[in-house]
Computed example of a mutant assay.
Amino acid sequence: MAVAGLIGAVGIVTDSRILIVAAMVAGPEYGAVVRAAPGIDRRSGPRIRKGQTALTAGAWEGARGGGVRSGREEVSD
Rank of each mutant, 00 (worst) to 15 (best):
G27M: 07
A32L: 03
A37N: 04
P28A: 01
A54R: 12
P28M: 04
R64P: 10
V13R: 06
R64N: 11
A26P: 00
A23K: 00
W60F: 15
A37E: 06
E61Q: 12
A26V: 08
A32I: 02
E61I: 14
V25C: 02
L19H: 00
E29L: 10
E29D: 05
E29I: 07
L55G: 09
T56K: 12
A26K: 01
T14L: 02
K50V: 12
G58I: 11
G58R: 07
T56V: 15
A63Y: 14
G39V: 05
A37H: 05
G62D: 11
V25Y: 06
R49W: 11
G51F: 08
Q52C: 13
R64Q: 15
R17K: 10
T14Q: 02
V21Y: 06
K50G: 13
P46W: 01
A57W: 11
D15R: 13
E29F: 10
T14F: 02
D41C: 04
Y30H: 09
A36C: 07
V13Q: 08
G31S: 01
R64A: 11
K50S: 15
L55M: 12
Q52F: 13
G31W: 01
W60A: 15
A32D: 07
P46M: 01
D41Q: 10
G45K: 06
I18R: 09
S44V: 10
V13E: 05
T53P: 02
I40V: 08
R43Q: 08
G58T: 12
R43P: 03
P46T: 02
I18C: 07
G51V: 07
K50I: 11
A57G: 14
E29Q: 07
G45Q: 05
S44Y: 06
A23E: 01
A22S: 06
P38L: 09
I18L: 09
M24P: 00
A59R: 13
R42M: 03
R47F: 08
T56P: 14
I18K: 07
G31T: 04
S16N: 10
V25A: 05
R64Y: 13
I40T: 05
P38I: 06
T53V: 13
M24A: 06
Q52N: 11
A22L: 09
E61M: 14
G62S: 15
G31M: 00
T56L: 15
L19D: 01
M24W: 06
A32M: 03
I48L: 05
K50M: 13
I48P: 10
L55D: 06
D41S: 09
A23D: 00
V33F: 09
I40C: 04
R42Q: 08
G39L: 04
Q52K: 09
G31A: 00
E61W: 13
Q52E: 12
A54C: 12
R35Q: 08
